[in-house]
C-alpha cells in the first residue's frame, strides 16, 4: 500500500503549485498512471479520501488516467498496445521490444480557481471588505495551513522509522530550488 505515500507526495506538489499560482479552490487533480506500475487505482482513491481532509485538496476530485502499455518492436518497428503479460511483437513475433508507454506516474495538472485580483497583482493586499463570500473558506489562511501541516506530520510520523531523519538542509535546498525554477517559468 504505497499509494498512501504516493498521494502524500501528490498533495505536496499540489500545495506548492497552488501557492506558486496564487490559486484558491482546487477542483481536481489529474494524474497519469501506467498500467505497468504497481499502483492500484482503488487504493489511490482510498488514500485520497483518507489524506485530503484539512488540505487544499479537501473536496477536490482525483482523476487517474490509466495508460495502456505500448511497445515498439526493435526488429520491425511495429508499435503496438498490449497487456501486462505479453510484450512480444504481434507482427513478427520478436521479443526485442521496448516499452514506450505504460510506466507513467505523473502529476499532469490541477484544475483550480485563480482569483482575478491575485492574478492582476502579486501583492498580498488586504482583501476588500465584503469580498466574495464563497472565496473566503478556501483562502489558504493560517489555520488551514496548520491543519495541513498537522495531517502531513502525523502521517509522516506514522511512517517514519527511528532511522529516517528529516531531510538534510542540502536536500531541502535542492528540492526548493526546483520549485523555484518552476515558479519563475510560470511567471
Amino acid at each position: 500500500m504505497h499509494e498512501v505515500g504516493i498521494i502524500s507526495g501528490v498533495l505536496d506538489a499540489v500545495d506548492k503549485s497552488v501557492a506558486a499560482n496564487h490559486a484558491d479552490k482546487v477542483y481536481a487533480v489529474n494524474l497519469s498512471v501506467g498500467e505497468e506500475t504497481e499502483v492500484i487505482k482503488d487504493c489511490m482513491d482510498f488514500a485520497w479520501e483518507a489524506l485530503t481532509p484539512g488540505t487544499v485538496c479537501e473536496g477536490a476530485e482525483l482523476h487517474v488516467n490509466m495508460i495502456k502499455p505500448k511497445s515498439v518492436c526493435l526488429a520491425c518497428g511495429n508499435e503496438f498496445e498490449h497487456d501486462r503479460f505479453h510484450n512480444d511483437c504481434p507482427k513478427c513475433g520478436s521479443y526485442e521490444t521496448q516499452l514506450i508507454a505504460g510506466h507513467e506516474l505523473t502529476i499532469d495538472s490541477i484544475d483550480v480557481d485563480i482569483p482575478d485580483d491575485e492574478s492582476a497583482e502579486d501583492s498580498a493586499e488586504e482583501p476588500q471588505e465584503n469580498s466574495d463570500a464563497n472565496a473566503a473558506p478556501h483562502t489558504p489562511d493560517a489555520s488551514a495551513a496548520e491543519a495541513y501541516t498537522d495531517a502531513m506530520n502525523s502521517y509522516a510520523d506514522s511512517l517514519k522509522s527511528e532511522y529516517r531523519q528529516a531531510p538534510t538542509e542540502e536536500e531541502k535546498r535542492s528540492g526548493d530550488h526546483e520549485m523555484q525554477n518552476e515558479k519563475e517559468s510560470q511567471k
Binding site: I6, G9, V10, A13, V14, S17, N21, A23, Y27, N30, L31, L105, T106, I107, D108, S109, I110, D111, V112, D113, I114, E171, S174, G175, E178
Partner: peptide, 18 residues
C-alpha cells in the same frame, strides 16, 4: 476554473536521490 500544468513525476524526489 483554470487548468495549471504541473507535469512532474510523482516520485521525483526518490528518483533524484536514486
Amino acid at each position: 476554473m483554470e487548468t495549471v500544468d504541473i507535469k512532474q513525476p510523482v516520485l521525483q524526489l526518490n528518483d533524484k536521490l536514486a
